[in-house]
Simulated scan of single mutants.
Amino acid sequence: MTATAHQALSHASELLAIRDAVQRRLDQLLPPGSEHDLVSAAIRESALAPGKRLRPLLMLLTARDLGCQASGVLDLACAVEMVHAASLVLDDLPCMDDAATRRGRPTVHRQFGEDVAILAAVALLSRAFGVIAAAEGVRLGCKAELVAQLSTAIGAQGLVAGQFQDLREGAAQRGEEAIARTNELKTGVLFGATLQMAAIAAGAGPRVRDALGHVACDLGQAFQLLDDLADGRPDTGKDCHKDLGKSTLVALLGADAVARRLRGHLHSADRYLAAACGERVQTRQFMRAWFEQQLVGVA
């Protein structure tokens, strides 16, 4: 086996171990399941269903590249995943995207009812902040800033604003800037919180945090463009063709142009990650490999 192949295999094994650690810790942090407690069952279904775990992996690898080994970062990563899971539950509701399938399974409201789905999402958001407050190995003085980062990403200037724009303006004719702004709010802000929380835990300075802010913007755009390109594919685990009639960049510019733009964002993100993390390259290797895998058959 060549040195390069050995490194790739070792890196893949390490990523799998990190993903497994996230899954185990999520299981521990969530309320125990019970057939008589539908809300707890819905919470566990939404957060523990097989998923990419992209944001927890990104946080843990970035923190490591920044020299942070605090055990509590795993809990911070789980908190971000809880927020992401809650956002998907709400996004899928009939009053929003009215989705039937998520991660290859019936959406939470299809399984448990709309009332239970909403309560589960609220409980997940609440639990996320409780997990941050109790995270061990994270300096007490950091926790208020960590909470502020995540709450801003969720709130009226973050995910909420992005979802509102998508619902109310998504079917209207929009220009590139308006579409990109919605993409940033729907996706980029949570990547931003993920990276900034890693930087806070690591005690990183303004230069590093500024570079990570640029990384988050590029990754948010790239991820949303990837999602738009894959809309018609039957192997995404989600409803097909949910973007029909919506003003996406794919509809506006065409798939080829969007694929080029996506790769431009990835190149920019890689450049800023290099500026933030220097010679430590685990996060860069992960993001390159993850997007290349996702782009097979898409762009």
Rank of each mutant, 00 (worst) to 15 (best):
M96V: 15
M1N: 10
A99N: 10
T62G: 08
T107R: 03
R64Q: 15
D270M: 02
R288T: 14
L252I: 02
Q7N: 13
I179F: 01
V250A: 07
R260W: 01
V131Q: 03
A42Q: 01
D97M: 06
G137P: 02
E177R: 13
F286K: 04
G232T: 12
A135S: 14
A193N: 03
G237Q: 04
S46L: 08
A259D: 05
N183C: 10
M59D: 03
L140M: 12
Q294L: 11
A216D: 05
G245N: 10
K186L: 09
F286A: 10
G297D: 05
V208I: 15
R261F: 00
R207T: 14
A211K: 09
R25Q: 12
S247C: 14
A128N: 06
E35M: 12
A134Q: 15
A171H: 12
G264D: 00
E279N: 14
E184H: 14
D256P: 01
L90W: 07
D98T: 05
A21Q: 11
Q294G: 15
G188P: 08
D218R: 12
Q285Y: 03
A70M: 02
L159K: 04
L66A: 07
A77Q: 03
R233A: 15
T152R: 14
L90R: 11
A133P: 03
Q173I: 00
M82T: 08
G33K: 09
G67T: 07
W290Y: 14
L140H: 12
Q165D: 13
R209G: 12
G264N: 05
D92Q: 02
A47H: 01
R263A: 02
A161I: 00
A5G: 09
V73C: 15
G237W: 03
I43F: 08
L266T: 07
M287C: 15
A222S: 10
R174E: 08
A193P: 09
D239R: 00
T187A: 11
F291A: 07
D65Y: 05
L88Y: 01
L185R: 06
A255Q: 13
H265D: 07
D65K: 11
A86M: 10
L29E: 06
C68E: 11
V258S: 04
S13F: 10
M82V: 07
G141R: 10
G137K: 04
L29Q: 08
